[in-house]
Amino acid sequence: MRLATLRTEDGTLAARVDGDEAVELGLPDVGAVLARPDWREWARTARGARRRLKEARYAPLIPRPGKIICVGLNYRTHIKEMGRELPRHPTLFAKYPEALIGAGDDIQIPAASDAMDWEAELAVVVGDRVRSADPRRAAAAIAGYSLINDVTARDWQYRSPQWLQGKTFEGSTPFGPVLVTADELEGELERGLELVAELDGTVVQRADTSDLLFDPAALVGYVSQILTLNPGDVIATGTPGGVGHARKPPSYLEDGAVLVTRIDSIGRLVNTARKSS
């Protein structure tokens, strides 16, 4: 099953994607769907007005998650290109909802930064309330998967040992276009999903999710030891090698650049970078 949050003339609405149509679910966004205890069966069988998907405008998949937990240094290729040792535990930081944009929205390059970098990532969306989860419970709590690009202001990220200030600039983070439920990707995820980022038509990142150091269930279990995860919370699982900051010379997003992030089994984000004045 695939779920999306669409923009309309009156705001946003949650929809189930059925082939080339979107079925309205009568709720404002996917976060509201996941808040229902019976969301899996309800969303699968709900009936509503239908829209042509090719005309849809996507809002951020979950516009205001309660938590956006991001994982740094989680692909072996990226850890090596950054010159670091493999970590024993996940490296965590946070992002705030104001950073999120839709699958086709413009990425805002702030006037304050000259080093906005791309970071294509698989996003894990939580579907059940979970605390101190063992591996089985952690896996069962995953609603499904989406795409996120953790666009990062490197010149702000490295102003201090703490990364937050470079990671959550407003209007910088594409998230969507859909939630693909965990049951639909179970076999594919185990074999590994190809994650690709393209900049102006050139592939800059290509990796297989089997290169993840800490897999989605391990991340849910780890984070749930620290705090309660609730339906609609998001974990960005980290980026593979190929980021602009690690290139020689470094390369960053420029005004007008088109950034495409895709996993064929999930979808694609197509976002144009726009420099703020």
Rank of each mutant, 00 (worst) to 15 (best):
M1R: 02
M1D: 01
R7N: 05
G11H: 00
T12K: 10
A14S: 05
R16L: 07
R16W: 10
V17W: 09
V23R: 04
L25W: 08
P28K: 04
D29I: 11
V30L: 04
R36Q: 09
R36K: 05
P37S: 07
R40S: 05
E41D: 14
R44Q: 08
T45P: 02
T45F: 11
A46K: 05
R52I: 02
A56E: 00
L61S: 01
L61I: 00
Y75P: 03
T77E: 11
I79E: 06
G83S: 06
L86V: 14
L86A: 14
P87H: 08
P90N: 08
K95H: 08
P97M: 04
E98N: 14
A99D: 02
L100M: 00
G102I: 04
Q108M: 13
Q108R: 15
Q108C: 12
I109T: 05
A111T: 05
A111W: 06
A112G: 12
D114N: 15
M116I: 01
W118Q: 14
W118S: 12
V125C: 02
V126W: 00
R129V: 13
S146P: 01
A153N: 04
D155L: 06
W156F: 14
L164N: 08
Q165L: 15
G166Q: 00
T168F: 14
F169H: 11
F169G: 01
E170D: 14
E170Q: 14
P174T: 06
F175R: 11
G176R: 06
P177H: 00
P177D: 05
V178E: 10
A182R: 13
D183S: 08
L185F: 05
E190F: 09
R191P: 05
L193R: 01
E194F: 00
L195R: 07
V196P: 02
V196R: 13
D200Y: 03
A207Y: 00
A217Y: 03
Q225S: 15
I226M: 09
I226G: 03
L229R: 03
L229A: 08
N230D: 15
V234G: 13
I235K: 08
A236W: 07
T239I: 04
T239G: 10
G241Q: 12
G241E: 10
P250F: 09
L253M: 11
E254D: 15
S265L: 14
R268L: 08
V270H: 01
V270S: 05
S276A: 15
S277L: 15
